[in-house]
Write a protein that binds this DNA or RNA. Structure first.
Lengths: 215, 215
DNA sequence: CCGCCCTTGTGAAAGGTTTCACAAACCAAG
DNA sequence: CTTGGTTTGTGAAACCTTTCACAAGGGCGG
């Protein structure tokens, strides 16, 4: 058991946990690997393999205890606690994040927001005072934010990410369309909408080329 | 050459194209696979393999013509044209998308926006009139939108996706935290911020567990 | 034209992930 | 207690992706 766990496995664990929480709320007590697999588009074997990396959570012939597995996955994914986020860039995407209740509901609290725009500094967005970039380091140190969120223009994203890292965050979520390179073991995830759209563009063009030449 | 191309390959092609466009703007004429590889964190062999699925674009000893490869990748990815998007749900994320100039700049134009909220219907957001859900089908048919964007609450996301598909879109970009299943060959990409954050949470917990037990 | 250096394109090898298939274990009913 | 139906946990097999390594080809100076 346990070794290097792939990104896709971790992704699926999150999806399993989501479903398990729904089941728990619905009062279901046991669930089988095949029921668990369905909503994430995985197979039952994959569910069992994924879980087997971390231990043995099921009962043969019976399935998994919903409550037990929820607690186990929360432990594995680090979700039995909540995490503090520091947001840099309170533009379109940044504001949308601040207003999105789904984050806090799932244990991700935005505790600080920064921007360079003088007009925004000092004002409040969704109850949070917007601070100048110069205060980035001391404020992050003080409030103990663990995750930095980059929602700035592309040109400054790399620089901001480096600054967040120096300020002591343990991970970075990046919304700028640029591939940031992990340094010092601080993991970075990039959410790149244009990349997703271009992926869809490829698939549609491909479909068109196929039907176009076959017909 | 050419067969089934993996998602990760397509992702990288987009990244190569991004860099190539920068080089083109900078007036660079030729580029090698290793230069092309660097910013996306790939290797030069991977760049060459990725491209080799579609043909032979380089000159041995010299590299790739920047302009030629830009045109080739645009053709492959379906980006020599622009795409029309129909947005459903003009809440926080939907508004952020409407205001994000980066989409139109890269050939993705939002041409229609829908919402259920009576208070929003008829008003304009970033120059686009917000329409009632009842008009979804006729309006999409009329304006010929190819990509549907789901920016609604989770509960209705699946239903909206199905409706978009019936309205004739060829692909769907989904922002609701739910795994939507592709039907009728309409590809779906989901942007799930909570999933990304949970991935980071796992990595940070894992790092903590390692140093915690080793020290 | 020749020889040198450089970079592509690509089979083969390595590495990683998913699926298969089945023994081991558990529950319930008789 | 035994039997039958069910589901887990897991090696082995199949599949897919990435890396390696090198022959083939191109440009350039002499």
């Amino acid at each position: 058991m346990s070794g290097r766990i792939s990104d896709s496995t971790v992704r699926r664990l999150s999806l399993y946990l989501r479903m398990l929480r729904d089941l728990e709320r619905a009062g279901v007590e046991f669930v089988s690997s095949s029921q668990l697999a369905e909503p994430s588009g995985a197979t039952s074997a994959q569910v069992r393999k994924d879980l087997s990396h971390f231990g043995s959570f099921g009962k043969r012939g019976r399935g998994y205890s919903v409550e037990g597995l929820v607690r186990a996955l929360e432990g594995i994914l680090g979700l039995s606690r909540s995490w503090r986020l520091a947001l840099v860039g309170v533009g379109k995407i940044g504001s949308a994040l601040l207003g999105y209740g789904g984050l806090a509901a799932r244990g991700f609290d935005v505790v600080a927001a920064f921007d360079v725009d003088e007009a925004k500094i000092g004002t409040r967005a969704h109850g949070l005072r917007i601070r100048p970039m110069t205060e980035l380091r001391p404020v992050i140190a003080e409030c103990g934010a663990e995750i930095g969120v980059v929602a700035t223009p592309t040109e400054v994203a790399a620089e901001i990410a480096a600054e967040l890292e120096r300020a002591g965050v343990g991970a970075i979520l990046n919304f700028a369309p640029i591939e940031l390179s992990e340094v010092n073991g601080v993991p970075i995830r990039t959410v790149d909408i244009v990349l997703e759209l271009e992926g869809l563009s490829y698939l549609m063009s491909e479909a068109g080329r196929r039907t176009g030449s076959d017909a």
